[in-house]
Amino acid sequence: MEYHYPIDLDWTNDEMVTVVTFFNAVESFYEQQVERSYLLEQYNKFKKIVPGKAEEKKIFKEFEKGSGYNSYKAVKHAQDNPDKKYLSGNSK
């Protein structure tokens, strides 16, 4: 499926790609499965672009509005399950 990605036009092309890659990992969490370490790695890269909590919440809310996927819950699930290699939003 194709979703609307919240993009800041002040970001560089590389930063935009990083943000979209993170949201693709969130999509994989809900639609299939994703490797835990990959999701957390993409989140850490995302945080280098969006370090503030308020901006993160705004962007997560925009993405959820367009996709129905809660990025915070996906990341939280990954952080709370260090014993799992693969994660899926369908089997919480």
Rank of each mutant, 00 (worst) to 15 (best):
E2A: 14
E2D: 15
P6T: 12
P6F: 06
P6V: 06
P6A: 11
L9S: 09
D10V: 05
D10P: 00
D10A: 12
D10S: 11
W11K: 11
W11Q: 06
T12F: 06
N13C: 03
E15T: 02
V19T: 11
F22R: 01
N24Q: 14
A25N: 04
A25V: 03
E27M: 07
S28F: 05
F29L: 09
E31P: 01
Q32V: 12
Q32M: 09
Q33V: 06
Q33R: 14
V34N: 00
E35P: 00
R36C: 06
S37P: 03
Y38Q: 11
L40A: 09
L40F: 12
L40R: 11
E41F: 07
E41G: 06
Y43V: 07
N44M: 10
K48T: 10
K48G: 05
V50R: 02
A54L: 14
E55F: 04
E56A: 11
K57C: 10
K57L: 13
K58P: 00
F60E: 03
E62W: 04
F63A: 02
E64V: 00
K65S: 02
G68A: 13
G68S: 09
G68D: 08
S71I: 03
Y72C: 01
Y72H: 13
Y72A: 11
K73W: 05
A74G: 10
H77R: 13
A78I: 07
P82S: 13
P82W: 11
D83L: 04
D83I: 00
D83F: 02
D83N: 08
S88V: 09
N90A: 10
S91T: 14
K92T: 07
K92D: 04
